[in-house]
Structure formats: structure tokens, C-alpha cells
Design a protein around this nucleic acid. Structure first.
Lengths: 186, 186
DNA sequence: CAATTGTAGTTAGCCACCTGACTATAAGCC
DNA sequence: GGCTTATAGTCAGGTGGCTAACTACAATTG
């Protein structure tokens, strides 16, 4: 549960009351906003708790996933097979964290024997990161559990409702991404 | 951006491909799950970035909000007015963090002169936490900006879509809360 | 070829989250 | 009244985010 989020969402009447005092408060927007963050936080918490039983966190798990996808890439999957293992910078980019953060993640994963660093023979600035057998065994063990957890969490929604939620969330996602970088002139 | 979340969500075809190899993978559940976390992360990031321009974070802002709600509670708002300022433990409970975390938050807020600690005269274990005038001024300045940001983020959704999203998210929220504490016998 | 510029990885230092242990105090119960 | 138990706040130590600065190396360019 990484972010501090109000545990009890305000009742809608309180939002309406607040809107009467503050013209900037849009009750339905506020409700949607708070519910989104609250739900994301709660779901994230469930995931973290499950992962922590296997000594993992979201971050560590994501790195293992990224590494596993590379080495497990079947030829028929249609995805391009990279010529070499990924570098910390590539992992950071894919995971959406800074290179400094990735250094720390790979440090602890390496300390726990799940991952191995190896210098790139062609560019001495770079490192390659690879799963160890132990890391591969762990991710293979975890994946089915992780998938079942996703299914369990989304079980109250019908197929149609899932599609609807994804559609609505994507609208918000796009808006939020635009907020972050209003223009990418390149 | 507190949580590490894959930046590029997998395409749906890849999920279908994965499901063929792993019977536990439910493609629509997986898509909904990833989109939910990704969107929550992105929205959270927008908020953090805005708040950081005023030297705040989600956590610091939430504490100020909680303190402000107490002292700004108008009699006609219908909410019960507490007899005294909140304690760190109450703030932690309301914000959904541990008491230890709240100690740290109040530490930095007090260091920055936004908040004041005062011993409870009736129970020497407890402290009262209150906004300073500086803290109150800051939250009053921030709130309209914060409300406008919520409205902006939710602007792509119609009123109906917001209601729908809240309804669907609440189903997931309830499921996730149940996951966390399967039974509360009390 | 030498100097500049850019890139990869790390380090240091900050913040906010956690757990677990500790201290002081209050409350309940012989 | 004196144990025991419970509660409030804090501290210690760990993790995972961040930025900014540094080192080593590669690439570009005059």
C-alpha cells in the first residue's frame, strides 16, 4: 500500500455540501477520482501482500516478469526476440522507473540470487541482466498464482463490465498522460 | 509515482496468446487488472507532480486535509464536531497508514511549520495535532487547484460514465477488501 | 586525432511506506 | 493498591521511489 489514501471515502452528500461552498468542486468528478485511487490502492495492497509471502514486491516481480518474457519468448508468439539480455536502463524504461531505482532493485534481486549481472562484451558501459535458474523457477511458480489472483479480483465483473471499465479507464489514462506531458514536439 | 507499473500495457492478442499457454490466465481479467493499476498509477503521478510544486506530497496533503476538515467543519454541515484536535493515531487510521508512518509525516510537516503538536492535558500518552495558520493558508490555497485538477482528469467522462465507473470500481474494491481480511468476526 | 557531447550505471541523500520493538501511560482486575 | 493488559507515540532498520551528481565509456564532430 504505497500511497496514502483516505480509508473511508466521503459520502456523496458531503461532496454536494462541499460543492455548495466551493464552486470548483465537481461532485461526480471527485467521487470518480477518489474511488479510482482508493480501488487502485486496495488492489495494489492485495497484490503486495500475496507477493510478500514469496519475498517479492511489485517492483521485484515486475523485473522478474520482464526478464522471463525475454528468455521464454516462444518463436511462434510473434514478438521479436532480442539479440541479447536487457540492460538495467531498458528494464527501467519498461518498468517506468528511473535507472537509479533499477540499480537498487537489481541489487537486491542479485543479493537474493534471483538475477545475475554480466558485462556487455561489446560496450563496456553496459550490463546485461538475466534470470538465474532460481529466479526462473520462482517466476514460473508465481505466475499461475498471480493470474489466478487477477481473475479472483475481477470475478465480480462480467465480461461486458470488464470491457466497459477498461474503456472508461483508458479515457482517464489518456487524459492523465496528456496532463503529464502536454506536448511532445520531439 | 509510487508503484512500479509496466509502462506499456500488453496488447490483448498477447494476452490471448499467453492464455493458450497458461490456463490460469483470464485475458479480460488481466486486461482489466493491468489497466486499473496503470491508470491509478498515472493519475497518482499527476497529483503528486501538482502537489510537489507546492512542496507537498499525497501523504502530506492528506494530513492537511484531515486537519482542515476538523477545524473548518461548519455547524450546518451535519457532521459531528469532535471535541478536540485529532491525535496521530487517529490521523493514521483515517489516512490508512501505520502510526509510525504518521509520526514521520507529522515530523516533516511540523518542521515546515504547517502543523503543530501539543500534548493532551488529560492523557499524557496522547498528542494533539493542529494546523498552524501557515498550514491553513496553504490548504485553503491548494484546495481549489486540487478540485479543478480532479475535474480536469475526469473531464473525458460524462456524468453517466462516471457513475458507471464508480459502480464497477466499487465492485472490485469490495472484492479486494474481502481478499485482505477474509473474515472480521469481531 | 582531440575535444566535446551524450549515455550507462552507480552513488549519495531525501522521502514515505513498512514491521517490530521500546517507553510511558492508562485502564482493568484480582 | 498493585499486577496485567492495552494503548499512544516513537525509534531502528529495511525497502523502493525520487533527483542530482559522479565515473566510465562511446560517439560525434571540429
Amino acid at each position: 500500500m504505497p500511497m496514502l489514501m483516505l480509508k473511508d471515502l466521503p459520502r456523496y452528500e458531503c461532496l454536494l455540501e462541499g460543492a455548495r461552498q466551493n464552486p470548483d468542486l465537481d461532485p461526480s468528478a471527485c467521487e470518480a477520482f477518489l474511488t479510482l485511487l482508493r480501488t487502485g490502492d486496495e488492489v495494489f495492497g492485495v497484490v503486495e501482500r500475496r507477493l510478500s509471502e514469496h519475498n517479492l514486491s511489485q517492483g521485484r516481480f515486475s523485473v522478474l516478469m520482464l526478464l522471463w518474457k525475454v528468455c521464454a519468448r516462444a518463436p511462434e508468439s510473434g514478438c521479436a526476440t532480442p539479440a541479447r539480455p536487457p540492460t538495467p536502463a531498458e528494464l527501467a524504461e519498461a518498468a517506468g522507473v528511473t535507472r537509479a531505482t533499477m540499480t537498487g532493485l537489481v541489487d537486491t534481486l542479485e543479493r537474493d540470487g534471483l538475477v545475475r549481472r554480466e558485462p556487455d562484451p561489446n560496450d563496456r558501459r553496459m550490463m546485461w541482466v538475466q534470470l538465474t535458474p532460481k529466479g526462473e523457477a520462482l517466476i514460473k511458480e508465481m505466475l499461475p498464482l498471480h493470474f489466478r489472483m487477477m481473475a479472483c479480483l475481477m470475478q465480480p465483473l462480467s465480461e461486458t463490465e470488464r470491457k466497459t471499465m477498461v474503456k472508461l479507464l483508458n479515457k482517464v489514462l489518456e487524459q492523465a498522460s496528456g496532463q503529464r506531458a502536454p506536448a511532445q514536439p520531439n
